[in-house]
Amino acid sequence: MAFRIDLTLDCADPTRLAEFWKLALGYVDEPPPAPFATREEWLQQFDLSKDDAEDGAWLCDPAGVGPRLFLQQVREPKVVKNRLHMDVRVADQDTAAERWATIAEAVRRLTGAGATVLEEVPDHHVVMADPEGHEFCVC
């Protein structure tokens, strides 16, 4: 039996970072679980202390194919390289030139949204960091 996975990113500003990842992945805000009208209403059932009730953002693939993404606010900053990173696959063209042009366009779009290029492996992939430093590859 296969299981679904969700990904969680610790971050300082989930609301801001959610906008970046919605652009990068084509994701949307995930609605609250039924029967709740809002995430705030859903969270109230857990009786969280003020310290535990930090900001968060829940994103999902509108097609229901990709993993859900939870952006969780944490106080401590990121200090080391990720042990796990995402590969954002944007290119499926037949020719290498078309494939690389698609990757380059995605990199331009993501740097415009606050990402940083860390390394380019020509004709294969680009290693980037999101606005809070989480590493990912565009391929």
Rank of each mutant, 00 (worst) to 15 (best):
I5F: 14
I5Y: 14
T8Y: 13
T8R: 07
L9G: 00
L9I: 06
C11I: 01
C11A: 07
D13N: 14
P14L: 05
P14V: 03
F20P: 09
K22D: 03
L23W: 04
G26S: 07
D29Q: 00
D29H: 00
E41H: 02
E41W: 01
D47G: 15
L48A: 03
L48Y: 04
D51Q: 02
D52H: 05
A53W: 04
E54A: 12
D55A: 15
A57E: 04
L59W: 09
A63I: 02
A63C: 14
G64A: 08
V65D: 14
V65E: 13
V65L: 13
P67G: 07
Q72V: 00
Q73G: 01
Q73K: 00
V74R: 00
K78W: 00
V79Y: 00
V80N: 07
V80T: 02
V80F: 07
L84H: 14
L84A: 14
H85M: 13
H85C: 11
M86W: 10
A91Q: 11
D94S: 13
D94V: 15
W100M: 09
T102R: 12
T102H: 12
A106D: 06
A106Y: 05
R108A: 15
T111R: 13
G112H: 11
A113R: 04
A113C: 12
A113N: 09
G114P: 15
L118K: 03
L118M: 09
E120S: 10
E120C: 08
V121K: 10
D123K: 11
D123E: 08
P131F: 08
E132F: 01
E132S: 01
G133T: 00
H134N: 08
E135T: 13
F136E: 03
C137V: 15
C137G: 10
V138C: 10
C139L: 12
